[in-house]
């Protein structure tokens, strides 16, 4: 084999590979463009973790809520908007004998930790309908014992809000009339109606009127 032939023999694989990769690259332009969207949805670099790792899943944040504020208060002020799955309040009611954490947002895991406030409802301390729910088998087991006039207090890190039960309600799980936004300032708390095992399709609850708002001035500053 002469030198010229040897060079040709050595160069041919590279030439061949370049031609094939070139053809492949050109042929893949259109399909790759179409696939790109799907691939970007299916594989996200920011989600590079195995679901069995501890760093995946919902992050529930428990906070210490101010219960013994002794500073100046005012009837108006600003609220501190919590993050999803953050404990932002404590709901107390002597008539029910409860003092329970309230989380912002609602899902099955959060409902195991306390009461949940729908993130589409008005945050306590603002105008509108604040909607809080919990399981009937745990936190709101005695919700049906509430009567008109009973007091319900909500403590947050920006103020204390006292409500009085206006009326008792019962509605179907698919009926949203009590949990949709309202023009007045109210608190709606509800749970499943006690039934023979299994999730009940009926809900019971109370609508409360706001009696007193005490925004913590020192926190406001």
């Amino acid at each position: 084999m002469n030198k010229k032939s040897l060079i040709l023999h050595l160069a041919t694989p590279f030439l061949l590979a370049s031609v094939c990769i070139g053809i492949l690259a050109v042929a893949m332009i259109k399909p790759a463009d179409k696939l790109k969207v799907f691939v970007n949805i299916a594989f996200m670099d920011s989600l590079k973790s195995n679901p069995t790792d501890n760093n995946s899943g919902l992050v529930i944040r428990d906070n210490d809520i101010i219960r013994d504020y002794s500073g100046k208060t005012s009837s108006e002020g600003d609220v501190i908007r919590p993050a999803f799955a953050e404990m932002y309040a404590v709901l107390s009611c002597d008539a029910m004998g409860i003092d329970i954490p309230v989380y912002w947002g609602s899902n099955a895991e959060l409902l195991e930790h306390g009461a949940c406030q729908s993130s589409s409802s008005a945050i306590v301390g603002t105008k509108g309908n604040a909607v809080i729910s919990a399981h009937v088998d745990t936190y709101f087991a005695d919700l049906d014992k509430l009567k008109e006039g009973d007091a319900v207090t909500i403590n947050t890190n920006y103020g204390q809000f006292t409500y009085s039960v206006r009326s008792l309600i019962e509605f179907s799980g698919s009926d949203r009339k009590y949990i949709t936004p309202k023009d007045d300032t109210r608190l709606t708390i509800y749970t499943c109606k006690k039934d023979l095992l299994g999730a009940s399709s009926q809900r019971i609850g109370v609508i409360c009127d706001l009696k007193e708002s005490l925004f913590y001035e020192e926190v406001q500053k």
Binding site: I41, A42, F43, M44, D45, S46, K48, S49, N50, P51
Partner: peptide, 15 residues
């Protein structure tokens, strides 16, 4: 690059 670990669906059995 362990490319498949960035698969979006994180429900353990599906993942």
């Amino acid at each position: 690059t362990d490319y498949f670990s960035s698969f979006t669906i994180k429900q353990p059995q599906i993942y």
